[in-house]
């Protein structure tokens, strides 16, 4: 017995699939090899769908502009910011971040010499491919200074909000 659903299915058979085959159409046999190949440029992957303008991705932090006002720590719902008293800057944990963008709204920023308006220290990038096996890996922690400097200059501190 033909139903409306059946006609719908036949119509869909004639259309192209709706799925965006990102990053590859079928799961590869060996994932690590595929990633290596992509890195070497021997293989190309399908692009993801572009994200809109207001997209909130991984947080970008410019320590130069940070005045150490701790407002972002006050508003952050997930306690993703850690205060480092030695350098009076923050450390951001991407794994704890809930991508609400409140810290960006509240950040006062700093006016460098020669500028008319202050520029915020924090901004939302469009980066969203953040999966990792280790939640403390380097690319999931935004450090205020380069890793060598910040970690050599200070003792391990447990001071946090």
């Amino acid at each position: 017995m033909p139903t409306k659903a059946m006609f719908l299915m036949i119509r869909q058979l004639l259309q192209r699939p709706f799925t965006n085959p990102f990053p590859v159409k079928y799961a590869p046999k060996n994932v690590t090899k595929t990633i290596e190949k992509v890195k070497l440029g021997q293989m190309s992957i399908n692009n993801p769908i572009p994200v809109p303008d207001g997209f909130r991705g991984k947080l970008k932090y410019d320590p130069e502009r940070c005045i150490g006002c701790r407002l972002c720590i006050t508003v952050c719902p997930a306690n993703a910011m850690e205060w480092i008293p030695e350098v009076r800057k923050i450390r951001h944990y991407v794994t704890r971040c809930m991508f609400c963008g409140l810290c960006v709204d509240v950040c006062p920023g700093k006016k460098l010499p020669g500028e008319t308006a202050p520029v915020k220290a924090l901004s939302m990038s469009k980066e969203f491919l953040l999966a990792d096996y280790d939640k403390y890996s380097d690319n999931l922690i935004v450090e205020p200074t380069s890793k060598e400097q910040s970690l050599n200059n200070q003792e391990p501190s447990s001071d946090q909000k």
Partner: peptide
């Protein structure tokens, strides 16, 4: 809170 600092975890 179960949040710990990364320096602590790495140590």
């Amino acid at each position: 809170y179960t949040h710990k600092s990364v320096t602590e975890i790495r140590a």
